[in-house]
Design a protein around this nucleic acid. Structure first.
Lengths: 118, 118
DNA sequence: GGTACGCTTCGATGAATGTCAAAGTATTTG
DNA sequence: CAAATACTTTGACATTCATCGAAGCGTACC
């Protein structure tokens, strides 16, 4: 069986809480790890990219879930996680893309993209 | 004369720092107060919307400026402030709009999107 | 020069946060 | 049942943060 861990409803997702959840390097790394995949991803796999203890990882997953950024499902003794794309897009259009889209490095510029500003 | 207060260069604007600066109700209110206006806005005018002491307002303006979100210029004993639209758009396209654009209230829904839950 | 004004800095304080070790819970496996 | 596995919760600790009162600083005005 798989049970879904408690999470806020779409309408109760709060912008400040979301931003606070996003404002952490570890959580940003976790989110980037799931951003590409559209479906559920194994928590441990995603967390392999970060270098903190298991309790800390667990803590960060909880913050993400309680902020409304992710959905976590427990399957046996494994956990899988996914970004709540639809809910977040409905509440704060463009936010996830703006934060999670791999930006060109500060120095590295592609073309002096003149039209990009608009 | 008017002098510009120190601020990070465009390339040294850090995403996590920006998100942390955004993750505060008071600062969000201040930013919304300047978001509409395209040019410099009087600090006191913008701050009239928040209910905290002058030292706290000053603190928040500093956080915003040091994060690279705003430019502050001192003119006499007044301060004016403006959002660094261009720099932020260059570094994190769409971020400001996603955060500062007045979203429809949580309850106000466009269509009863039945499929949204999944 | 002296006073009022606008804002900042300093210092303190209470609350929140990130982190980990240790213990706990639930699930799978021998 | 017992042991191992995967993750969480608890407790503690150090750090950061938002806040305000008091004092400081530069500017404007009388």
């Amino acid at each position: 069986m798989s049970r879904q861990l408690p999470q806020p409803s779409r309408d109760s997702i709060d912008l400040v809480t979301v931003l606070a959840a996003l404002a952490d390097p570890v959580r940003l790394t976790l989110l980037r790890g799931m951003y590409a995949s559209s479906g559920l991803v194994d928590c441990a796999t995603v967390a392999s990219g970060v270098d903190v203890s298991p309790p800390t990882v667990s803590h960060h997953y909880r913050v993400l879930r309680e902020a409304g950024l992710t959905t976590t499902v427990a399957e046996g003794r494994r956990r899988s996680v996914t970004i709540r794309h639809d809910d977040l897009e409905a509440r704060f259009p463009g936010l996830l893309a703006a934060v999670l889209t791999p930006t060109a490095a500060p120095g590295a510029l592609a073309a002096p993209s003149r039209a990009a500003v608009l």
